[in-house]
Design a protein around this nucleic acid. Sequence first.
DNA 1: CTACAAAATGATAGCGCTACCATTGTAGCG
DNA 2: CGCTACAATGGTAGCGCTATCATTTTGTAG
Lengths: 346, 346
Amino acid sequence: MKKKTVQPPPVRASRRGTGNTTLTDVARLAGVSAITVSRALKRPAVVAPATLARIHDAVARTGYVPNLMAGGLASNRSGLIAALVPTVAGSVFLDTVQALTDACDEAGCQLILGQSGYTGFREDALINAIVGRRPDGIVLTGIMHSTEGRRKLLASGIPVVETWDLTPTPIDMLVGFSHERVGTEVADFLYRRGYRHPAMVTADDYRAGLRRSGFEARMRSLGVDVVNIRMVSAPTTLQHGREGYAALLAEGVPVDVVFCSSDVLAQGVMTEAQARGLRVPDDIGVMGFGDLAYASFLHPALTTVHIDGKTIGQQAAQFIFDRIEGRDVAERIRDIGFSLVVRDSV
Amino acid sequence: MKKKTVQPPPVRASRRGTGNTTLTDVARLAGVSAITVSRALKRPAVVAPATLARIHDAVARTGYVPNLMAGGLASNRSGLIAALVPTVAGSVFLDTVQALTDACDEAGCQLILGQSGYTGFREDALINAIVGRRPDGIVLTGIMHSTEGRRKLLASGIPVVETWDLTPTPIDMLVGFSHERVGTEVADFLYRRGYRHPAMVTADDYRAGLRRSGFEARMRSLGVDVVNIRMVSAPTTLQHGREGYAALLAEGVPVDVVFCSSDVLAQGVMTEAQARGLRVPDDIGVMGFGDLAYASFLHPALTTVHIDGKTIGQQAAQFIFDRIEGRDVAERIRDIGFSLVVRDSV
DNA sequence: CTACAAAATGATAGCGCTACCATTGTAGCG
DNA sequence: CGCTACAATGGTAGCGCTATCATTTTGTAG
C-alpha cells in the first residue's frame, strides 16, 4: 500500500487555477461566501464566533494559505516593507535591519532586504526591482541617490524614509544624524585627550567621507594641520584595518592616534598593532565608529562612536506605518544624534 | 510659478485603479495592445524592433514600472526565492546568502530573506508567512523542521532545498555536509597535533551539537575520555567566547586546546587568552569552525574548518532554477564536504 | 502572382483576493 | 407593533498582468 504522504499539486498546465486551495474552496467547505472567509482571516472581529470556528476548521482541513499576490493586487497593499542597506555583513546597519524586522513581525508584514553596496549603480537597480513589488514603504540608507532613482521613488507614491544621514530636503521622511558633526566631535575629543598626531584609516564611501571632512576641518581649526589618511574601499574589513595601519607605519611619520571609519577597521588596526608588539593605547590610540556588539569585548575595549541603529529602524517603521494608516506625520525629519563611548583603546 | 516636480498619485479612494501607470496606458501611448507591451518587457525577441522602440519610448515617458503582484498572480510565478537562515549577523551563512543573491540577480528574480533564529518556533512562523508569497523556491538552513512546517512545505508544491546539513531523506533537495564528520575529523587532527586535554566552547544549537557528538565520540575512541564542554547560547558572540574560556580556566582542569563551534567563539577565546597574558598557540591552542573572512587576519591566524558557503548557495539556486524550468534534477542530494584550514592558532 | 510558413500582434478570460455596496436578521426604543 | 440601528453576511466588479488561442502581416519560394 502506498505510503500516505502529502503530494504536491501539479504544475499548472492551463488557465484553470494552480491546483492550490483557494478562498473559494475554504468557503464551500465552511458553508459561507469567500468574502466571509477573507474577513475571518483578516478582520475576525466582524465575523460571528460560530462562523469563525467553522472557517478555521475548514482552513486547517484544507491546509489553505492565502495567496498574498492576489490580496495585494486587490487591496493595493503588498504587506512588504523594503529596506536597502549597503551591506549586512558585520555591519552597523544590523540593528536597524533587526528593528525593522521586529516592527514588521509585530505589524504582520514582511521586510524585503536589498544590499545596495557602496556605488550608486546598484541602488538604482534595486529601486527598480523593489518598486515593482509595490512595497508599502521603502527605507533607504543615506541621502545620495541618482536623479533617476529619486524620480522613480517620487513617482511611485510609496512612502520613503531615508536613514543614516541628515539633510533638510529629504525625498519624503528621514531619521538619521550628522556625519560631519561626528567627525568634528571626535576631533575635539581626541585633541582634549592630548593626541597631536592623528591619522585616519577610513573607507571611501560618501558618509565616511563626511566624517573625515568634519574631522580634518576641526583638527585644522585646533592647529593640527596634518591628518594622515589611509583610504580603503568599502565595505571595510579587519584585513583593511591591518593593511591601513601597516601602511601608516611604513610611512614613518609620527602617529599617536588612529580614528577609523568603522569598528571593523579599528579592530584591524589593533590586531596589526598587537602583531607588531605595539600596545594600545600606550603606544597608539585607536578609535572606531559604530559601537558594534563586540566593541566592548575587544582587548582593550574599543573607544568608539555609538549610533542608535535600533531607534533608526523603529522610527523608520513608525513613519511608514503612520503614513500607511493615514495618520499625519508631524515631524518628517528626526535627528537622533550620536554619543562617544569612551573605553580603553584611547 | 510652481516648482516643476513629480507629484505622487493620490491614495486610491475607489475601486477604479490605483492611479499608477499600467500596461494599458503604455499600450495606448505606443499604439499597440497591452499584451505586446508585456511581451516587449518580458520576451523582447518576439516583438518587431520598431515596435520595441515605440514601447520603450512610451515606458520612459510614462515612468511605467510593472506591477509584479499582478504578473505573479497571472503567471503563478512570483519571481521570489525565499531563504531562511538562523541569523545574518556576522555569520557563516553570509556567503550562502550572497551567492543566492547573486544567482537571483543573474536570473532576474529577488531573494526574500528570513532570520529563523535557533528555535524551531520562528521557522514555522516564517514558513507560513513565506508560503503566502508563493516564492518560486524555498531555501532552508538545516534539516530539523517541525511536522507542521514540513507538511505545509510539501503541500505548497514549492521547490525546497535544505542546506548546511545532510540527510538521506530530505523534503525535496539538499546541499550540505556532515557535522558529525566535521567533529570526527577535527578530533583526529587535534590528536595528531599532540593535544591530549581538549575542551570545547560550543553553542547549544542542533548542528553545533552534532559536531560536538562527533568530536567527543572520536576523542573517546582515541583514549581521551574527558572533553571539557562549555555551552553558550546561539547565536554565538565574541563575548560568549571570552566568557566560555574564562569559565574553563576557572575550573582549573588542564586544557591544552579549545575547539570552538564557530570562528566568533574562537576569536573570543583568543581575546580572553590575550587579556590574561596567555599565548596562542604556545600556552593554548584554539580552533574555530566556519573560516569567516577575517579568520586568516586574526593574530595569530585562526585554524578552522572551511565550509564552501558560496557553493551551497549556488547549488541551491541551481536546484531551484532547474526545477522551475522543468529540467530533471538528477542528484537531489549533494554532499559538498569541508576542509580543515591549518593556520597559526594550533 | 500565388501559396504557404513564420513572425508579429491581438482578444479575452482568468489568476485569487478584496473594496464597496447590498441584503438580512435581530435587538431595542417609543 | 412598527421603526431604526447595527451586526453579520453576501454579490460582484475589478485590481494588473498573462496564458492561450486566434488573427494579421510579412517574407519567400515556386
